[in-house]
Design a protein around this nucleic acid. Structure first.
Length: 114
DNA sequence: AGTAAGGCGGGCA
DNA sequence: GTGCCCGCCTTAC
């Protein structure tokens, strides 16, 4: 595919974009795989986004736990869903079961669509 | 190089 | 609301 424009040595172009975008998510907010995909100009690559995050090279630096499903569910996480929930709660995000409360309100949307 | 699997989304029953 | 199925793009073997 040709969406990615930036080249990187260790990371694929795609991953680089994804990671860069994730870093922009403000603390206390969340975004979805879909918006993320849109944000990097590949709205159809939602799955690929997940893959990229799964191989997250800098798990700590990159707040991948702030990325959830578009239906408000937590979704999965490299270190386990449980851990993801823990991290989110620690940022003030409330979670009930597997669902985020006030999902709509704390949802972060990317400004630049491409 | 071919194939399977994955932190998903959307549509429909 | 749930569950199933198909499509999507990338990465790993």
């Amino acid at each position: 595919m040709n969406c990615p424009k930036i080249k990187s040595k260790n990371l694929s172009d795609f991953s680089s974009k994804v990671l860069a975008a994730v870093k922009k998510i403000p603390k206390g907010k969340v975004t979805t795989y879909k918006f993320l995909a849109q944000g990097i100009g590949c709205p159809a690559a939602v799955r690929a986004v997940g893959s990229a995050l799964n191989k997250n090279p800098a798990l700590i630096k990159i707040p991948c736990h702030r990325v959830v499903k578009s239906n408000g569910l937590i979704g999965n996480y490299r270190l386990g869903k449980r851990k993801k929930i823990f991290l989110l709660r620690r940022e003030g995000i409330k979670i009930v079961g597997d669902r985020i409360e006030n999902f709509r309100k704390i949802l972060y949307r990317f400004k630049n669509k491409y």
